[in-house]
Nucleic acid binder design. Structure first.
Lengths: 140, 140
DNA sequence: CGGGCGAACGTTATGATATAACAACAACGC
DNA sequence: GCGTTGTTGTTATATCATAACGTTCGCCCG
């Protein structure tokens, strides 16, 4: 699986950016910057700035999201389009799996909640920690 | 959820915990651990673990919230009661001011969104970045 | 062609955030 | 007293992230 551009506004990725993005997609989960660095040393990336610069660009264009609460990064699970600014993440504290959730109602509620305080939101970080379906104890 | 004792709002803080909490309340805003350390050196706190331990306890009992996206800590702005597990924060990127928002509808939306994915949430981190009322350009 | 220029690169060094580990001590029940 | 438990103070170190600098790349335009 390669770093093919997706939808509308995806400029071509540079080599480093493609390597980082591919690593995140292959991981099918979140990775920290230093995990990416370790994974990509074999391919010639040697120092943190190379990773962080690629991640900066990838998050800027919406291909990658940053998980603030775990200091990790995850490839966008949507078709790249909209909703990035209010994406929510369900992070399993047991297995580390991350699922990206998007919901118009949630976005609307957040916006109205902010408006009620005179606040103009620019971006949101919404991260749920808990237990995913597969890790939940079998009892109901 | 809401496990803080109702009868005793403050479970007797130790000296260090009280110093850290007082510093956060006086700041009327967010502070990083190292800002707290600098502020409290004069009172005898010398090393990061002393700060982090106090913060750990204060967040455990709900008197302090951690802002994941800014690596900072803020005193709870509620009357201490419930809603801590789904509190949202509006963080002004201009002046740094932080307002704690709480909304039952938001909490419900998040829960139902998670349930739809078979996810069982334990805690949420909801942080809005943007511009507060006072910092917003006057037109618009 | 080739000069200019902005973006990306590689590298070194350092800054910022957070925790491990351990010895000393206080508070408390018995 | 004496153990148990939790907090403290301290040193050292782990983890996360960026500053700064010169070099190279891609590409437009003269």
């Amino acid at each position: 699986m390669t770093s093919a551009a997706k939808g509308s506004p995806s400029p071509r990725l540079t080599r480093n950016q493609a390597m980082v993005y591919d690593a995140l997609v292959s991981a099918s989960g979140a990775m920290t910057a230093y995990q990416l660095l370790d994974a990509l040393r074999a391919e010639g990336l040697n120092a943190p700035p190379q990773i962080y610069r690629a991640l900066q660009r990838l998050t800027d264009i919406g291909l990658v999201h940053r998980l603030e609460s775990t200091h990790a990064f995850v490839a966008c699970q949507h078709g790249d389009g909209t909703g990035h600014d209010t994406a929510a993440f369900a992070i399993c504290d047991d297995c580390g799996d991350v699922v990206e959730l998007s919901d118009a109602r949630l976005a609307r509620d957040l916006r109205s909640l902010a408006d009620g305080s005179g606040f103009t939101p620019h971006r949101a970080s919404i991260e749920l920690h808990g237990t995913c379906e597969r890790c939940r104890p079998a009892n109901d």
